[in-house]
Design a binder for these strands. Structure first.
Lengths: 135, 135
DNA sequence: TAATATGTAATAAAAATTATTACAATACAA
DNA sequence: TTGTATTGTAATAATTTTTATTACATATTA
């Protein structure tokens, strides 16, 4: 996992706290202290996942696509989740080894199980609840 | 998360399947298809965590430190787990922003909760059970 | 029509991961 | 007691991934 989830959470929290006024990528980059282009890339992704809405042109910016009480942390995680939460080996194991031959498929199954319990847990908190912590 | 967990699992599974005969780092590197020095680094770490035992010198190698039924996947994960399973932002958020100022501590709490449910789940499977899948 | 945003491509810089080389220390076996 | 195979680890190089920057087309408002 890289820094995408913290960035996505930061973006969503800012938008939640903005109380439906448009925020610019420049403003959010200032809060996160990161390059505006990277933010816009993540914003593109959140947009694609239907979590936010953008408005082009002057005075444009971003707002949440729906009420924060209807967005769960799980939904945000889904938008940025890596292929394998438990990590992926870069090299193909030796197919002549009885363990090496099969291990990737077993690890993949394990990964799917873990992702499920994570999503269950992350699904119990809404963005609105998370945002309340900042009051 | 990088490739350390898959490597650690591969090592532990090989040792479990070896039925208490010593395996060399060279042999394991061949199954995993990775550089022997990297394997030895991970072996050092597993050693430090008390999961395996090494024997120096000619005909040396590695074996499990205890029966595979007494080792859980959670125990293996603990040996290689990253600081933050949900990822860490590289940059310090803007302390002048009310969200930026606090978000890291809230994300850290969230991370701890998620790690706990992961460990609970990984704790329900032993290495012996995982190893049985390969029969 | 000027100004201010989003959206995105191309590229550069930095950081992290993985691989390699080298060699000391140890223990077995002939 | 000497040669050999193995662990253990440091130093360095190569590769890959992540993050930052530059540039600019497109859209919208005033």
């Amino acid at each position: 996992m890289n820094g995408r989830f913290p960035i996505a959470m930061h973006i969503m929290t800012l938008l939640c706290a903005s109380n439906e006024s448009l925020l610019s990528s420049e403003y959010m980059a200032g809060s996160i202290n990161i390059n505006p282009v990277l933010i816009r890339k993540e914003l593109s992704n959140l947009l694609k996942h239907g979590l936010i809405i953008s408005q082009l042109g002057k005075n444009g910016g971003y707002i949440l696509a729906k009420p924060a009480k209807d967005i769960t942390i799980a939904g945000i995680y889904q938008a940025v989740k890596p292929d394998a939460i438990l990590g992926q080996a870069k090299n193909q194991p030796n197919p002549a080894c009885p363990i090496g031959k099969e291990i990737n498929s077993h690890l993949k199954n394990l990964d799917a199980e873990i992702e499920q319990v994570m999503l269950n847990k992350l699904g119990t908190t809404t963005l609105a609840e998370f945002c309340k912590k900042f009051e």
